[in-house]
Design a protein around this nucleic acid. Structure first.
Lengths: 150, 150
DNA sequence: TTACATTATTTGTATAGACATATATATGTC
DNA sequence: GACATATATATGTCTATACAAATAATGTAA
């Protein structure tokens, strides 16, 4: 069941590059599906989790919406609406920036930090479990993905 | 700009496995964004394209909705609704299956085949362009992804 | 300082993902 | 044949993606 050809019942691909794209999309779905099980009981979506992770990395320094957007895994997602969802749950604060009133300072709350801590531990353990590679192979994969994007 | 650490401004990861998950999600977004530019002028979504590709692989033999679902890259997507969208555009036919009236036979139309032919060529060329790897590296990547999923 | 362009954020809209539930048909057992 | 159970598909709902467009504040150049 390992090979992508069997997994999606496609006999052959144009070339190794086109096979790699399909393989990557399929593997992405495999990982995201596994992760989503962890988020569900906490009523948090994967992208909301990602935003919390970015905010925690700030160590208490407020960030703007556009800065969050730049650092998101999915560049096309909508940070403004994700922050709004997190605010309604009391996981982040949103304050008008005095220096530039167009901007909004976003800060993770104590409640947000605690929730993140709980989930992050589970996600980190789950990721190790779902990736059937040795440490060296994981390093290789990271190098290939970095190179792939140019 | 290659390394994932710089791309999303995160200094370090728990381990190589957790780094690989983030790297994969980020690379997926990079590839899907590049592809979507090609689909847009044809008013087709990436998953609609994927369904057409599966139907073409049938070489004229009708398939059921659940068979399409099994072979989709994203197992959680909704094949029923995707087929409905394609039917409204005249790209597929949907016929009640005489042998089992619960099932629906799906068939790609001539119009669907022609559209697919045009787009597939562009997608295949684009994929080669966006993957900055040698052929050997692409093979390595495919092997690692197949092994990753166990 | 008026006019115009730029930037930060929000909002609108269509499509899809993720999942639960409904409905129709088929199958197996008594 | 009546019943429960399984299967195929459709539908409902919430969230997110992928854009375009609106709004408000700021910067810049005449």
């Amino acid at each position: 069941m390992g090979k992508i050809e069997e997994a999606i019942q496609q006999k052959e691909f144009k070339d190794q590059f086109n096979k790699a794209v399909v393989n990557l999309i399929y593997t992405h779905s495999y990982l995201v599906t596994a992760q989503s099980v962890l988020f569900k009981p906490h009523d948090l979506s994967p992208e909301q989790y990602n935003v919390l992770r970015i905010l925690k990395g700030q160590n208490g320094v407020p960030t703007t919406v556009s800065s969050i957007q730049d650092r998101m895994l999915n560049k096309m997602s909508n940070a403004s609406r994700l922050v709004e969802k997190l605010k309604m749950k009391g996981l982040v604060e949103r304050n008008e920036c005095p220096a530039d009133r167009r901007q909004v300072d976003i800060l993770i709350t104590e409640k947000g930090l605690e929730l993140l801590k709980t989930i992050q531990k589970q996600v980190e353990e789950s990721n190790v479990e779902y990736i059937n590679l040795t440490n060296d192979e994981a390093i290789q994969l990271n190098d290939l993905l970095d190179k792939l994007r140019g």
